[in-house]
């Protein structure tokens, strides 16, 4: 089984917990952790299931519900805020037809907010998966989203 293979790449030590969870979530096309994932990790690291659940729910990057193929994280820190992140948020909501925390009907995008991405020099900024986009304007936003839509 594929998931077991992912888990087995890691040493059976508790300090690997976050790394394993990251990998399992990444391997899921819907970008989330299933109950089965949590049980698998708990068994592998010999931890109570509650300990794994406890950790998963603490960190904002882990999700227990299905998300889109691409996660959009708009930075809502002060430098981005001052540079107009809020008008971008409305543009994003409108363009995607969803609110923060929701996923588009086609399952392509989930919209989230993030704390500082550390690219304040090119504020306002967002991340789509591991890619950072800066100097955003509503027009540039549309171009970027169109590219992801094209690639599917």
């Amino acid at each position: 089984m594929e998931k077991l293979e992912i888990v087995r790449r890691f040493p059976r030590k508790r300090d690997q917990l976050l790394a394993i969870l990251h990998e399992l979530q990444r391997a899921n096309p819907r970008n989330y952790l299933t109950g089965e994932d949590l049980r698998l990790v708990a068994e592998y690291l010999d931890l109570p299931l509650s300990a794994v659940h406890d950790a998963v729910t603490f960190y904002s990057m882990f999700s227990l519900v299905p998300r889109g193929k691409h996660i959009i994280r708009l930075c809502d820190s002060p430098p981005c805020h001052l540079a107009g992140a809020w008008s971008l948020l409305s543009a994003l909501k409108e363009e995607l037809g969803i609110d923060v925390g929701q996923t588009t009907e086609d399952g392509l995008f989930t919209l989230e907010l993030t704390s500082c991405l550390g690219v304040c020099g090119v504020a306002p900024a967002m991340m789509i998966d591991d890619e950072v986009y800066g100097n955003l304007t509503p027009e540039r936003l549309k171009e970027i989203l169109a590219r992801y839509r094209e690639e599917g």
Partner: peptide
Amino acid sequence: LRMGAGAF
């Protein structure tokens, strides 16, 4: 290397 998961 250890990676965080979004908690300030």
